[in-house]
């Protein structure tokens, strides 16, 4: 599937990852600002898939560095929960990932996104995608 260009959504915490994501303008990647990892709802993750994303990443602050104390831990838990949901409906859970990124770590953001992007490329289009 050489000609498949996946679309990836990164839900980025405005205190860390979004500051990086704004700078890095990567093709096929749509950064979406969230106020804190704690604000991530499964509804929004599923909605992103529904709107045509092939993969979703939730990027929040490093462990014990959250401005709102446990927002990043909550985000990680929520991502694991939604992974289970995805599996239940026959979607590869690998399409969803959680990673901590610091506000000054552009390199890590780039690497993480690239890794995910390559993985998605291999996986091909979303299993559940409805052709419109």
């Amino acid at each position: 599937m050489a000609d498949f260009n996946p679309s990836l959504v990164t839900l980025c915490c405005e205190n860390s990852a979004f500051l990086v994501a704004e700078e890095e303008n990567l093709p096929g990647v749509t950064p979406v600002k969230i106020p804190c990892g704690g604000q991530v709802e499964h509804y929004h993750i599923l909605n992103a898939f529904d709107q045509g994303a092939d993969g979703v990443m939730v990027l929040a602050c490093l462990k014990e560095n959250c401005k709102h104390f446990w927002g990043n831990d909550r985000a990680e838990k929520k991502v694991n929960y939604v992974k289970g949901m995805l599996e239940n409906i026959g979607i590869n859970a690998e399409r969803l990932a959680y990673s901590p990124v610091a506000a000054n770590n552009e390199y890590k953001y780039g690497e993480l996104v690239k890794e995910m992007y390559d993985k998605l490329k291999e996986m091909g289009p979303m299993e559940g995608k409805v052709k419109k």
């Binding site: 509804y43 992103a48 994303a53």
Partner: peptide, 20 residues
Amino acid sequence: SFPGYTDEDMQKEFKKIGGK
């Protein structure tokens, strides 16, 4: 509901997926 991050606001962001 969180002003700026309501379902509609998020939906609007997700509309940009894949360059559309």
